[in-house]
Amino acid sequence: MSRYSAPMLLSAAYLAASVSLVHAEPLRANVVSFQATATQEVTQDLLAVTLQANREGAQAAEVQAGLKQTLDAALSEAKRSAQPGAMEVRTGYFSVNPRYGNNGRINGWQGTAQLVLEGTDTTRISQTAGKLNQLNIVNVSYGLSRALREQHESALTAEAINRFRSRAGELSKNFGFTHYSLGEVNVQTGDPGFQGRPMMMAMRAKAADAEAALPVEPGKGVLTVTVSGQVILSQ
């Protein structure tokens, strides 16, 4: 065999592989990509209230014990009004950190513990939050419950699909074609989630004020369904 045989064989194999690849993945023509969206404004029905306790002390264990005692008492009080779906109770952020003086040395400890009330019964949640006077309200958020999303998403999905099909027909006609077929299509749903409003409230001075229900007012959330993909135009 001559010294040129091996390179020639390799070149022939590479050429064959290249031709095979071209035939395996032909260039797609008359393909248009676009998207269609359907939206609906819905009154938010899911309320989340975050309450917080703050403690300071000379020892970390002292601060931690104080936070735990306060949180346990608040949990016991809140659970009396808890009801699945209507008002769920859970603990949130809990931390104890050193406090530094001007000389850069630790001169004490400070800690934070949070309790979260969440559900669709806004009256129950606001009244419970008003009773937990050992905690401060630091955030109030509204969102959309899963049940409310599912209630509206089916109709919105159908609307978005109809808009996609209508747009496909328009594009087909505008490009001078009479028919189209669907290529890859994706359906995506979404909503803005919780929208929070920070409420760093001062310690209540009067017992009567402490047990007053928290004033709340739901906002609006926008549900969105987007259909995106490709259509292949044909005569």
Rank of each mutant, 00 (worst) to 15 (best):
S2Q: 10
V225T: 09
A58F: 12
S181N: 09
G143I: 08
A16F: 05
A212C: 07
R55S: 04
R149D: 05
G169Y: 12
Y4H: 09
E150R: 15
L132T: 11
V222C: 02
G183T: 13
F194C: 06
L115W: 02
R165L: 10
K173H: 05
P215G: 09
E56R: 07
A73G: 03
V116S: 03
A6V: 06
S154K: 15
Q230H: 12
A78D: 01
T50N: 06
H23T: 13
M87D: 03
Y4E: 11
Q230C: 04
E184D: 15
G176P: 01
S76W: 05
D72P: 00
A205L: 12
Q230G: 04
V63M: 14
N186T: 13
T91P: 00
F164S: 06
N97P: 02
L46C: 01
G119A: 05
M203K: 14
T178Q: 14
T120A: 04
V96N: 06
E217Y: 07
R163Y: 06
R124K: 15
N97E: 15
I232G: 02
V42E: 03
P218D: 12
I125D: 02
V19S: 10
A16T: 09
F34Q: 08
Q35H: 04
T91V: 11
Q52C: 04
A113I: 12
L171H: 05
A113R: 05
E153L: 13
T39W: 01
S126D: 10
R99V: 13
E153R: 10
G143L: 06
N174G: 01
P84A: 13
S76F: 02
S33Q: 07
Q40V: 11
P192K: 09
R146D: 11
L47P: 00
G57W: 10
A86I: 06
V222G: 00
A205D: 13
K79C: 01
T39G: 02
E184Y: 14
S166N: 13
K79V: 06
A6M: 10
G101T: 07
L67W: 11
